[in-house]
Design a protein around this nucleic acid. Structure first.
Lengths: 218, 218, 218, 218
DNA sequence: GATGAATGAGCATTCATTCAT
DNA sequence: CATGAATGAATGCTCATTCAT
């Protein structure tokens, strides 16, 4: 994982960090192959040759950047225990964080996807990223099912993939493709759809659906 | 849209078609920039120079291919009036066709997305493609709302974007990223989630949820 | 000299002529290598392949065009016997025609020069063109010398080259490089300079210099 | 004017100079478009890619070379104050230098002319070059006119263009087209023609015409 | 004769990577 | 460590020329 120069002087560490930052900026703006190493070096205020002191190739840099970003997305999207309230509120909080995590790195994940089509190692990283979110979603659903609060017939993993995909995809449409919407409304709707889809049973602490006029007349 | 040689002899038309086909194959396998014009020519059994008789550049070919694919996706995803049954069955049919349309062209649409980040004209095509699906979804929902069969408080467009995105994204995860699932189960689940999310009221012709154990105990 | 298809039908002759005309127009506007055969064919309203029915190459066409132009310059610059008056008037008439001949074909002769640097045969044609003018000038001067009207010590050929060059070069500067001047004034001055340079003795029929204030005071 | 890498290491400066020299040699032998960048690189003993470290294109190199040559022609053709003697001797000296300046760079100036037909910036450079010579000639003539030594009725600029053109054109015919002549004789004749053409009055220090048998018998 | 599709050699240009200083 | 000059493989594109219809 750690490429080149395991031990670095302070100066070396600074230069390396500058390159990673510069790479992150560059990759956020241009597709992978449009980014030239020269661009990155210029951004980092470093000469062309120096790049190779720290990385073997553009891919190596991207791998590093992607790793950093994926790590950030992991930590950024953890719904802390601080979130009080019932399951609905927890879903809402998760969706908000999920949306924000993608907002910050949408372009880069797209690039990761693209890179994955060519390079196995990126495919692995991408899978890792997805798995974390999928597992969290699946576990959350299973817990609700166990508590009798959600439809027990739903396959937890597949459902998590689908509903998680809904959020992820909306983030993309919203942020990359410029669909107009404001965050609060988006999170509201995503949460409502998600909760209904899994058949979330109303509890005393989840007011949103109370006056739901849609409730089957029966 | 059609560039160069509007009028062609039969032979010319054949060659052009061969190039478009070859391009489509190539683009389905490799990212846009990994495809060399020589590859396409080799696939089409045509010399390098011939390519330029019909297209100005690789981008021009891709534009053509993308146009064809988008056209196919439009027609392939129309739920004919032949589909009998209630709204649930119609949603199910739409989801099945939607999934299949993406199954056939998933990679290419990803490329279209990538190309769109660089080239305005591709962004336009992509928007067009999305709009058709979004509008269909939104209109379908509005009709159900008018009939009192779906939650009238949902914003039709935003909801269509989110639920449509769920299907589209699942197609991607399923086909491109190799998530294991079989079509029937996937369509079933997608439809169930979709129907629940919009608060589709059960009618006599929609049996699936009849024995739904999730129904709130109240 | 005659290339390809010595015997042509009427239709063939027409097509060939169209190509030559089109070539002439094209060569008058663009440098030799900037002219593509396609351009010429388009101008002639003829398909690409047809060109090769009549010419072996672009150079062959240019050779033909150059030959036509050189021929025209020969005939156009002959000072007919109709020009009455003394030697001064004849020089003036010659200069006027010379200037006009170059005016009509200046660009093409420049191209001929350029082509001559690469292709021997063009060098020959160019030499031929020059020789005609040089010889005429030299003979004219020798006649004047024989009549005791011009400095007999001047080398006729070299003088003709130099003074002829003066006219030719001025035509270039005037027409190609856009130096502002009107024809009458230019011809006047060129003739005055030429006549003085060869020491043309005033005769009763050459009034222009009569009041020449420059005449050495002695 | 100076493109790319304004500041260079000694090594870089050496390489750049090698390319300019190589370009100059190449352009002296072949027409602009016949010169391939590979040729220049081979001549300079440099790899293909290195060329682009210093120049953006063949045209950029030519621009540089042309600039150098034009500069040389300027300085090389200045008649220093060291030339003693009367006006005739000064004209003679100027003609000699003029002829030599063109002798050294005749081909390249031809190319500059050709390039000027296509590229505005070259047209500008060419105009600059010409103007310097024209202005010098015109000023020289005006001075003589003021001193009562030359025909005051002659338009200085137009006359300078014509007589300067005579010298320039002769240089071309002599050196590029291979007209046989030796320098001394050519300079002699050019000077004689020039002096006579402007009606240069003999002074005690200008012997050449003293025994001029052409002097009008009157 | 005319057509225009097909060919492929030729050339410019880019850019990741190496390496001497 | 940093520098930036040098390298050359890779590839897109042009256009004169050929040839089957």
């Amino acid at each position: 994982m750690i490429v080149k120069s395991e031990v670095l002087t302070a100066r070396g560490r600074r230069t390396r960090a500058a390159l990673v930052d510069a790479g992150r900026e560059a990759f956020a703006v241009q597709p992978l192959d449009a980014v030239r190493i020269d661009d990155v070096c210029a951004r980092a205020g470093v000469s062309h040759g120096t790049f190779y002191t720290y990385f073997d190739s553009k891919e190596a840099l991207f791998r590093e950047v992607a790793g950093v970003v994926v790590g950030e997305m992991f930590t950024a999207s953890v719904v802390g225990p601080a979130v009080s309230g019932g399951p609905y509120e927890r879903i809402e909080a998760a969706n908000r964080l999920y949306l924000r995590a993608w907002a910050a790195n949408s372009r880069l994940v797209r690039m990761l996807e693209q890179a994955a089509t060519t390079d196995e190692s990126f495919a692995g990283l991408l899978l890792e990223l997805r798995e974390v979110f999928v597992r969290r979603g699946a576990e959350g659903l299973r817990r609700l099912q166990d508590q009798g609060l959600a439809d027990p017939t739903l396959d937890p993993r597949l459902t998590a993939i689908m509903l998680g995909g809904m959020v992820e995809h909306f983030a993309h449409v919203w942020l990359d493709l410029g669909e107009h919407a404001d965050e609060a409304a988006a999170v509201d709707l995503l949460t409502k759809l998600w909760a209904r889809a899994i058949g979330l049973t109303r509890t005393s602490t989840s007011p949103p659906d109370d006056t739901d006029p849609l409730e089957p007349p029966r």
